[in-house]
Design a protein around this nucleic acid. Structure first.
Length: 795
DNA sequence: GCATGAAAAATACCC
DNA sequence: ACGGGTATTTTTCATGCG
């Protein structure tokens, strides 16, 4: 019989040295199914030395066959390695767990240059080789198993054929469960061996909400009820926020401590940490929304509530937020417990809401790069790109290079021009779309087309990069070129198809998520090429890409200026020029003709303001919005007071062109600040812990604040943001900071916020108009004086 | 011993 | 654990002065 299924999760088991692939999915009638495939053999390649005879190597292996009991087959096959044909012996191995061990041995065999592809996981090997794609549909010939014992699915099948991919975009009706939990701890962050889980809030995509509550601090009933709920709802996706770092390890430990089995998987296993640090709940996809938070760089402090607020899921103003260290107090107080319960439920509601905004993209990304849905999020961008490349390599018979450690060698990047400071009217921004990918295609930059300086020039000729003089053969199209052309073609196709869909339709949403995923991978390709951790790293490729980039933009600037277009600013692939449609059109055509790359007008600013600095400016768009780039307004490490002031100053400057009014505003603001009329939370400064607290070479404010938090039992990890305020006192700045949760408004050092936050960012803009720090502070002095007098005499 | 300025460390941005 | 280029603040260190 035939089964059609949508692939949700994949794993493998080895029983008696024989592997089976477990494909967990949903069939087209909505059954949860497991297809067990025992038909696929693991293998690796022994690459043969140029002058050696592969049959000799085969004989060599055969001679020692008894030591390599799991080898089932040896095949002499031709493959390519960095574009060059190589002879290999494909070594099939019954037990996948022996692949890397055998490969290690065979590297020492005579005539064997190296062994490759022994470092690919068996389950990934299966997907890649058979074009089986996560979040995609497949058809397969199977026999049904009578029993489903040991697994929690509707049907279990044994594969009779390999799955065949079916082009079908729709996603089956998934059961999605979101959860969040509250742990009780009187001192500091909760520890699973001591502190119970007092609330677990769950919600589903079918609109059901439930809360499991401990009796006092006995959480056994909570955990049991939670398990029972999961088992009965039987979700396909289990979703949470920061669950890979927090909830799952905690649940694991807590269940162990209480001698309970964390039975949430569809197999009889328990959740465990796996590749790229994700937690696997076999048969279901566990998704951590935190892993997708960096898709939204506007959200500076990536907390659940901030992300939900940004995505319009739940506004922060409508919430009462509770710090982890206060959970115990809230739990113990009868009235406050209700607030805590609401807080927890709202967290889960946020999770469900954010899922809505992210899931399509996550599924498309998973589908595109072939990484299962539960680990596509935890895989770093480089690995996402790499899996996409591996998939393509398999298709064209290109061997996958080993990951080898390489030394870091910096190389020159892009050109940034100093802007003409001050205000400019009617400025158009022209830029090259996807400049690096297009350059890589145009000049066939690829690890396999690189011609090193000691190699002869091939008959087809070479492209030679300016400045760095790296050479790349013109023919045939390189690995990167093939991949990038495909990606760009696919994205264009999707985008033109989208025009026929209603923007509210499912097809539109799915297509949009798809084209975004394609775009992300395309744009990451240059970065990948220059990443020393990349399997396909070749420094000259990245170096040539930036060299051509510099040449491209410099040529463009020259041509623009020759055409009478003054360039007021340029960064990497863009130029800012006076808006003149005719000349711009002409320029576009000329560049395309001369360089074969497309440059188009993008934004038009009614007015734009530059400081003296590069990468920092603010423009007024025709619709009245401000576009602020690089300035403190868009930075996450300045107090909100400073950001608000600077934004307002920019608005006044750009819209009303009145520096005087802007200065007045700043003076008034400073006065209000002295009066403590601004919200306390606007004084918090957030900074990221980029390494363990002990590793810092210098004493920094946020690190000192982090130490204080840790002392009180807070759990802080690398990558966490620490929020602190500056309080009155003496000595260095780092001696005058406190975590914002530990300080009160009365001890705030207003002087610091005025002189080191508000004034500098205002001056940054206003100094262009002749306004000085002193002028901004002058009236403050007056106000302070009057304030002191009124305080003294009364008003 | 201390003021001063350069260098180093740290962070977060732009494209 | 994708690249290099850049601005900015604060700490740290070296230096010169007296």
């Amino acid at each position: 019989m035939k089964v059609r299924f949508w692939l949700l999760d994949v794993n493998y088991e080895v029983k008696e040295h024989t592997p089976e692939i477990l494909l967990w999915g949903i069939d087209d009638s909505g059954n949860r199914v497991l297809v067990v495939d025992r038909n696929f053999l693991a293998y690796f390649y022994a690459v043969i030395e140029d002058k050696a005879d592969p049959t000799k190597v085969v004989e060599e292996i055969e001679a020692e066959r008894t030591q390599y009991a799991f080898i089932t087959k040896l095949e002499v096959v031709e493959r390519k390695f960095f574009g060059k044909p190589v002879k290999t012996v494909k070594v099939y191995c019954r037990d996948p767990n022996f692949v890397s061990k055998y490969a290690k041995d065979f590297r020492k065999f005579e005539g064997v240059k190296d062994c490759l592809e022994d470092d690919l996981r068996y389950s990934m090997r299966y997907l890649i080789d058979n074009n089986v794609v996560p979040c995609g549909w497949h058809e397969i010939e199977v026999t049904e198993k009578a029993s489903t014992s040991g697994v929690h699915v509707d049907k279990v099948y044994t594969a009779k054929s390999l799955p065949k991919f079916i082009e079908k975009v729709e996603v089956p009706q998934l059961r999605i469960l979101g959860f969040s939990m509250i742990c009780y701890s009187k001192e500091g962050s909760p520890k699973p061996d001591r502190n119970s889980i007092v609330i677990i809030s769950v919600a589903t995509n079918q609109g059901e909400e439930k809360q499991f509550l401990a009796q006092d601090q006995n959480d056994k009933p909570v955990l049991e009820a939670f398990l029972k709920y999961i088992q009965s709802f039987d979700p396909d996706l289990i979703i949470g926020y920061d669950v890979n770092r927090q909830d799952w390890p905690y649940l694991n430990e807590r269940f162990k401590k209480l001698r309970l089995k964390l039975s949430v998987n569809r197999a009889e296993t328990e959740p465990h940490r796996s590749v790229y640090g994700h937690f696997s709940t076999t048969g279901r996809a566990n998704i951590d929304l935190f892993d997708f938070a960096d898709e939204f760089p506007e959200v500076k402090v990536r907390t659940l509530e901030n992300l939900a607020d940004y995505l319009g899921v739940m506004k922060i103003e409508d919430r009462i937020l509770i710090e982890e260290v206060d959970f115990a107090n809230y739990w113990e107080d009868k009235e406050k417990r209700e607030i805590l319960k609401k807080f927890s439920m709202d967290n889960t509601r946020c999770i469900i809401g954010i899922t809505d905004a992210i899931l399509d993209f996550a599924m498309q990304l998973s589908n595109l790069v072939s990484l299962p849905l539960d680990h596509v999020g935890t895989a770093a961008v480089g690995f996402r790109v790499e899996w996409f490349l591996i998939k393509h390599a398999q298709k064209i018979g290109e061997l996958v290079p080993k990951r080898v450690e390489k030394p870091y060698r910096p190389y020159a990047g892009a050109i940034v021009l100093s802007p003409e400071p001050g205000l400019h009217e009617n400025i158009a921004v022209m830029d090259f779309k996807s400049m690096y990918p297009n350059i890589m295609m145009a000049y066939n930059l690829s690890p396999d087309t690189y011609v090193s300086s000691n190699e002869p020039i091939p008959p087809c000729g070479v492209y030679e990069a300016p400045e760095v003089k790296h050479k790349f053969r013109k023919e045939p199209p390189g690995f990167y070129k093939e991949v990038l052309s495909y990606l760009i073609k696919v994205r264009d196709e999707i985008r033109s198809k989208m025009k026929n869909f209603a923007p509210e339709s499912v097809e539109y949403h799915v297509s949009d998520a798809r084209q975004k995923a394609v775009k992300v991978i395309t744009n990451a390709s240059y970065g990948y090429a220059g990443w020393i951790g990349a399997r396909w790293y070749k420094k000259p490729v990245a170096e040539a890409a930036t060299a051509w980039g510099r040449h491209t933009i410099l040529t463009t600037i020259k041509i623009a200026e020759e055409a009478g277009l003054r360039v007021v600013y340029s960064d990497t692939d863009s130029l800012f020029i006076r808006h003149d449609s005719e000349k711009i059109e002409k320029l576009s055509r000329k560049i395309e003709e001369k360089l074969g790359l497309e440059i188009k007008p993008d934004k038009i600013y009614v007015r734009i303001f530059f400081t003296e600095a590069k990468k920092r400016y603010a423009g007024l768009l025709p619709d009245g919005r401000l576009d602020i780039v690089g300035l403190e307004v868009v930075r996450g490490d300045w107090a909100t007071v400073a950001k608000k002031v600077q934004e307002k100053v920019l608005e006044i400057i750009l819209k009303e062109q009145s520096p005087k009014k802007a200065a007045k505003f700043v003076q008034q603001f400073i006065y209000d600040l002295w009066q403590r009329r601004v919200p306390y939370r606007d004084l918090i400064i957030w900074k990221t812990l980029t390494k363990p607290v002990e590793d810092y070479a210098i004493r920094a404010s946020h690190v000192e604040a982090a130490k204080m938090l840790k002392e009180k039992g807070w759990r802080l990890a690398v990558g966490d943001k620490v929020g602190y305020v500056v309080v009155v006192g003496s000595g260095r700045l780092y001696e005058r900071v406190k975590p914002y949760v530990f300080a009160s408004y009365s001890e705030i050092d207003i002087e610091y916020y005025v002189s080191k936050q508000v004034v500098p960012v205002a001056v940054r803009v206003l100094e262009s108009f002749g306004i000085t720090e002193e002028q901004l502070l002058k009236s403050r002095m007056k106000e302070r004086e009057t304030r002191r007098l009124t305080d003294f005499f009364g008003s």
